[in-house]
Nucleic acid binder design. Sequence first.
DNA 1: AATGAATGAGAGTTCATTCAT
DNA 2: AATGAATGAACTCTCATTCAT
Lengths: 209, 209, 209, 209
Amino acid sequence: MEQLSRKEREKKRKREEILTAALSVFAQKGYHGATMAEISQVSEYPLGTIYKFFQGKEQIYHEMIRETGVALGDILLNIIENDDCSPIDQIKKCFNEYIQYGIEKRDYFLIYNSQRSSIDAVLVPNINKSINKLHNKMNELLADIFEKGIEQGQFKSHSTAEMAHVFSSVVFSTIWMLIGEHESVETERLDNLFAIFMEGICVECTTHT
Amino acid sequence: MEQLSRKEREKKRKREEILTAALSVFAQKGYHGATMAEISQVSEYPLGTIYKFFQGKEQIYHEMIRETGVALGDILLNIIENDDCSPIDQIKKCFNEYIQYGIEKRDYFLIYNSQRSSIDAVLVPNINKSINKLHNKMNELLADIFEKGIEQGQFKSHSTAEMAHVFSSVVFSTIWMLIGEHESVETERLDNLFAIFMEGICVECTTHT
Amino acid sequence: MEQLSRKEREKKRKREEILTAALSVFAQKGYHGATMAEISQVSEYPLGTIYKFFQGKEQIYHEMIRETGVALGDILLNIIENDDCSPIDQIKKCFNEYIQYGIEKRDYFLIYNSQRSSIDAVLVPNINKSINKLHNKMNELLADIFEKGIEQGQFKSHSTAEMAHVFSSVVFSTIWMLIGEHESVETERLDNLFAIFMEGICVECTTHT
Amino acid sequence: MEQLSRKEREKKRKREEILTAALSVFAQKGYHGATMAEISQVSEYPLGTIYKFFQGKEQIYHEMIRETGVALGDILLNIIENDDCSPIDQIKKCFNEYIQYGIEKRDYFLIYNSQRSSIDAVLVPNINKSINKLHNKMNELLADIFEKGIEQGQFKSHSTAEMAHVFSSVVFSTIWMLIGEHESVETERLDNLFAIFMEGICVECTTHT
DNA sequence: AATGAATGAGAGTTCATTCAT
DNA sequence: AATGAATGAACTCTCATTCAT
């Protein structure tokens, strides 16, 4: 088990404070619009100190994306690992907790979304891929749940990959809407959206074979 | 009927060529990352010439967003106005054509998406609103189709606003995926996604009253 | 006697109109602040046409200074050549007419003054000298009048060069004041200034030998 | 008494060095003709450093005018405040010291003169007024001396405002001449000019009542 | 021959990064 | 070791001049 000295723990804490400040600034201004001076100001660490922790602006951006990506991945994994309930309940739980997390980590989702697109991709090419990798992994885990649900006869036997795609479409889009409108989450509305996802909109449910 | 002189047509064409180049550059680099020099290079118009058509970088960005926004709105309107078919067919048509258009206008969707978020919003605040206004209008028109479908007994009586939300979530997310993966559209996959949206994923379809 | 053809007269007239417009623009904005576009607009001659008459901005500036300098010189010469009156009257006449002319040719004096200094001198080095040459010539002609006045016992026997210097100091400074304050000339005030120049301010007039 | 820290003194010194360099460049090239690059080169401070002290070119110009204007005002005030001598001696002293100062502060007088005119006035409108305000204040202070001199029977009872005008005309014009001709001051010549101002040029001194 | 749209060199300014303190 | 003043490359934009029409 790794045991960090007080000094090392202190160092790690500072590093994370800087990254949190950076996240906030990048989310508001974008990569090029953000300035090192503003990151210094928001983080309350002097400019010179920031350069002790990171090589430069680009590296801060990379690390910031990566670390929050890892955090996001962990959340999802934890939600899914709690498999002591049925696939339907698991999906319902994912839906709610994911949206909850999305609102809490507003800034990260702003970044996440801008990075899924090609914007700034020339400057930070690998980030694009790593975001997509996370997204794909997330969808694979979700697909596993759907797989299990189909096996248990709870879900229709659609392609699991596409079920995951529709699910995350609705989840992310809802997070996006909530972020953009600066609204708080309304339970009823979320229930409706989830119901539409689960039941579909068509009266005549075609049976799958 | 307005008849533009050759000179005026020429001028309009140049303007549009510059905007197209700008769209491409902004989509790849974002507002701050894009440089006037690159827009000049891509458009193959010298810097000075660009400044004959536009006041500056910011105006180019505004106009570019606005013009493509108008074009996008027009497409949607045309699709919906072809109401010589049932709501289901109309929605199916919207789904396909929208995705088709999304792939064609790849660059615009990159911009559109980045603008729906708050990134760069401080610098171009009204754009944010105008994008959302378009998005809302689009959803309202879709909601009308769902409304009609419910009246005709083709759709379950969910909240129409949220049906529109789920629909556009799936559509945009799919466009997004196709853009990101640089894939060409696979008809079968799209059909699956549309089926999931229409039928839902749950085996037991609860009846709505 | 030179006889210009209609075409040549036309050409000369256009040239002078451009120079007049240039004078006005340079006087308001300075050499660097003035733009060719503005000279084109004020003169109501197209940009391309101006370049048929002059090699460029700098040449326009040179010619403008030179031509108005010649005109100024001619005025002074004419005033002095009317030597059918006493030196005192001649000086009085010079004083009044010079100030009159200064107000009429406001723009020229703005240029004249800025050129006597070293401002823009690096860019148009010879102009500086030519302005001073005119100024010196003017003072020499004035000195001749003072010389005559001394011989006729009307003026005290000061150094004539310095009498001319004091005279033109007061004249130019007054023109300057009138230009700056946008005031119209008040006869009484000018009389006072002239009286001070003629009589001095000291009660005990020391006799010169 | 305010005691500046070493750092603050250093900062002030740098600021003044930049302003001195700017004064020199503006005096030679005018506002528009001067470039930030040249100010950087002359001051031997890099461009970026200059922008730490000033917001931009225009502010440098303003501050430069203002600061030297204050300095000029102070000199004049000090000269006049030494009122332990007769008005005649005071005026004589003003005359000499003013000219002395004018030669020392050559660059400032070039600026001062160009600013009294309308050249560049559109761009820096308030400067024009502030220069004139200083000029007016200067003349008022001089007028006070003349007032006292008239009361003491040393000066003729001309209008004091116009006595001040003639005085400063001769002083400034002389400074101007010395600056333009790059000559050093010749005491005899200055004495002559002062004598002409004091005694007038006319043989018959009309008595004032 | 007359024009004014097109051009690109050069201006002012910002900001990521360094390094003397 | 910690800092933030100093730096200069790179940006946006202007305008004297040209040349196709």
